[in-house]
Every structure is written in structure tokens, then in C-alpha cells.
């Protein structure tokens, strides 16, 4: 008996060790695993590179003795070449165009989401959804063409001469059309995630379909819709080509949508398109604007993701 255990033990220690696959060295496998890991963390380096490069040049801009935070946030004229550093000249246009875009895309996107999720038959959905997807896939420069050469002339015939050729209104409207599919599809996801039991409870109480949709399903999906709204704002703030083509070229502190004005993104596109010498104040100022854009959209995206995650937990 004692000998047998001993034997087993020696077996375990001697011959079994040879077959322990876990301890077998697999160079190929570890190399592959390392490469995959590197690919995985590359995205972290991209973020670090964005923050570092934008931050570095933006620091150069803010370290210029001529630039003060007071001037940057306190004045309304932007012309770094001649010492005017009022970012509001650009931010105002970004605010106006984004506001118009949301004003268009939120109600339309939400309404179409409600129709698709609550009313449309399977067949209708299979026709309507691809149309929205096509709308989402059209390059933004094409939307710019549409804004400048279709919407602006139409607006001109309605509003009259006080509408300038380049104006924030048409850029904002077209931006709204561009964001509509995004808001619609995110809101639809949120609406579809509301459990069926809630709808059935409402029907059992005698509620009509609209009453169920607006008073039961919509409030339950509100956080998801909020996330869609925030992503929509983030898209509008970062959108470049529509405003570069249709909103105007030249910073202008104005909240009148009929005026021409340049957004933060449009300004970057116009200035960087020319021959720009590195280390000039024009060059570094672009990075300061880009850093602001990046941080703004980052915060918006994080808030939206946080809302979506919280919202998911509630029904699981």
C-alpha cells in the first residue's frame, strides 16, 4: 500500500511533468499573442498622440506672451496674425449651426424612430431603414454642395435679400438632415429596448397606440434618447465640410443665422488648406482650437456612453 502511493508519486513527478502542456514553451504562440496585444493597445497610443500633439502645439500658442486666457475667452475677434485671439468669434458660429442642426434633427429623428419602432410593419421597416442608412452614408462634402446650391437658393427665395450667399442657416439645416439618421437609429435602439410588457400593460388599460408610445415607451427610453441627443451634438460640433462649403469663410461673432460666419472646424479647414509655416501663431492657434474640439467631443461622447451603459443595466 505504501509502496503504491510512492510509485504513483514518482509517476506524477517524473513522467507526468513531461506531459504538462501548460508548461510547454510555445515561442510562436507567445510572439503572436504579443503582436495581438500591441495591436490592441495601439488605440491607446493614438489617443495619447492626439492629446500630446494637440496639447504641445496648444501650449506653444498659450505660452505666447501676447495670448492671455482673458483675451482668448473674453473677446470676440479672431485674427491671430494681428493679435486678436477671441475664440468666441468661432464658437458662436459653431453654437448657431449646431443648435439649428439639433432643432431639425431631434424632432425629426425622434419621430421617425417612434414610427419605425412602434408603427412600421416588418416590410415597411425593411424599406425605410435602408433609406435612412443611405442618408447616413452620403459624404459630408456632398451635403455641402447640397446646402450651397440647393437649400440656400430656396431659402433666399423665401427669406429674401437679407440672407447672405454663405449663411449659417442653410448649413445648420443640412447638418440637421445629416444627423437625422444617427439620432433616429440610436433612439430606435432605445425604444426597442423597452420591454414589451410595458406596452402590453398600457394597452390593457385601454391606452391607444400613441398614448402608449408617448406616455409609456418614450419616458422609459428617455435616457437612451438623451444619449442620442448628446452624440448628435458631438457630431454637429465636429462636422466640417458642410460648414466649410456653405456657412462662410471669415470669423464673425454673430448669432444671426442669416449671416455668414466661420465655425471652429471650418476655420481649421480653411487655414490649414493654405501654405502654413510651422511654429507660426496661425499654425499653433489651429491646434488650440482642435484641442478644444477634441475635449468637447470627448466629454460629450463619454457622457453619452455612460448614459447608455446605465440604461442597459436597468432592464437586464
Amino acid at each position: 500500500m505504501k509502496e503504491e502511493t510512492l510509485n504513483l508519486k514518482t509517476l506524477e513527478t517524473q513522467s507526468f511533468r513531461q506531459f504538462d502542456l501548460k508548461k510547454k514553451r510555445r515561442t510562436g504562440e507567445s510572439i503572436i499573442q504579443t503582436l495581438l496585444f500591441l495591436a490592441g493597445i495601439l488605440s491607446i497610443f493614438v489617443t495619447i498622440a492626439i492629446v500630446y500633439e494637440l496639447g504641445k502645439e496648444a501650449m506653444l500658442f498659450f505660452n505666447d506672451p501676447d495670448v492671455t486666457l482673458g483675451k482668448f475667452f473674453g473677446t470676440t475677434k479672431w485674427q491671430p496674425g494681428i493679435g486678436q485671439y477671441g475664440i468666441w468669434a468661432l464658437v458662436s458660429a459653431t453654437l448657431v449651426t449646431s443648435f439649428i442642426a439639433i432643432l431639425i434633427s431631434l424632432p425629426l429623428g425622434l419621430a421617425s424612430a417612434i414610427y419605425l419602432s412602434e408603427y412600421a410593419s416588418f416590410k415597411a421597416r425593411s424599406i425605410l431603414k435602408p433609406i435612412l442608412e443611405i442618408l447616413a452614408g452620403i459624404p459630408t462634402v456632398v451635403y455641402g454642395y447640397f446646402a450651397l446650391l440647393f437649400i440656400t437658393p430656396i431659402l433666399k427665395s423665401i427669406i429674401g435679400e437679407q440672407l447672405q450667399v454663405y449663411n449659417m442657416l442653410s448649413a445648420g439645416i443640412v447638418m440637421g438632415i445629416m444627423i437625422l439618421p444617427l439620432i433616429s437609429s440610436m433612439s430606435e435602439d432605445a425604444l426597442s429596448a423597452v420591454p414589451r410588457s410595458l406596452r402590453e400593460a398600457a394597452y390593457a388599460m385601454g391606452a391607444t397606440k400613441v398614448e402608449t408610445s408617448l406616455q409609456v415607451v418614450l419616458p422609459a427610453a428617455l435616457s437612451g434618447i438623451g444619449a442620442a441627443l448628446i452624440i448628435g451634438i458631438s457630431r454637429a460640433v465636429g462636422e466640417t465640410m458642410i460648414v466649410a462649403v456653405a456657412a462662410g469663410s471669415g470669423p464673425n461673432f454673430s448669432f444671426n443665422p442669416l449671416d455668414a460666419a466661420e465655425t471652429m472646424t471650418g476655420h481649421i479647414a480653411r487655414i490649414s488648406g493654405g501654405d502654413l509655416s510651422y511654429n507660426s501663431i496661425d499654425y499653433t492657434s489651429l491646434f488650440a482650437i482642435a484641442l478644444m474640439l477634441f475635449l468637447l467631443t470627448l466629454v460629450l461622447n463619454l457622457i453619452s456612453q455612460w448614459i447608455v451603459n446605465r440604461f442597459r443595466e436597468r432592464y437586464e
Partner: peptide, 17 residues
Amino acid sequence: TNINNLAGVPSIVYGML
């Protein structure tokens, strides 16, 4: 989270990068 965020960064910021 970082990958999801990068998907939402405005394209012009990638241009600056």
C-alpha cells in the same frame, strides 16, 4: 472605452494628428 471614443472623434482632429 477608448476605442468607442476614438470612433466619435471629429475627423478634422485626425487631420490635425
